[in-house]
Amino acid sequence: MKLGEIAHSRAGDKGNISNLSLIAYEESDYEFLKEHITPQKVKTFFKERIKGTVTRYELPKIAAFNFVLKGSLYGGVTRSLALDPHGKSLSSYFLLMEIDENAYCAYKKSLD
């Protein structure tokens, strides 16, 4: 199953840094996302694109994370050659990430 089935995301840009939020539809899924959607996994998912580090910030009160992707916008909006210089579409690619359906079902059962 895809990440987009359990969470939503919005991409933002500042210079050559993209940030992707990841927000659980059901707040109780926060811990599952915390365990499975690691910064390393995000870096690998966008390996061609990201030249720098990926940092994950936690916002548990709103069941959300902020992934900050350094060096991920081909030089940044002002000098990028990319079709989508802001990286607006990255949040939707992020939601294509596969998550382990069995692990998710097990997590949901553990909540009951």
Binding site: H8, S9, R10, G12, D13, K14, I17, N19, S21, I23, T55, Y57, L59, I62, A64, N66, V68
Partner: peptide, 12 residues
């Protein structure tokens, strides 16, 4: 939530 995290880095 989406707009709060839009174009920020460290939320702290």
């Amino acid at each position: 939530k989406e707009q709060l995290i839009y174009e920020i880095h460290d939320p702290k």
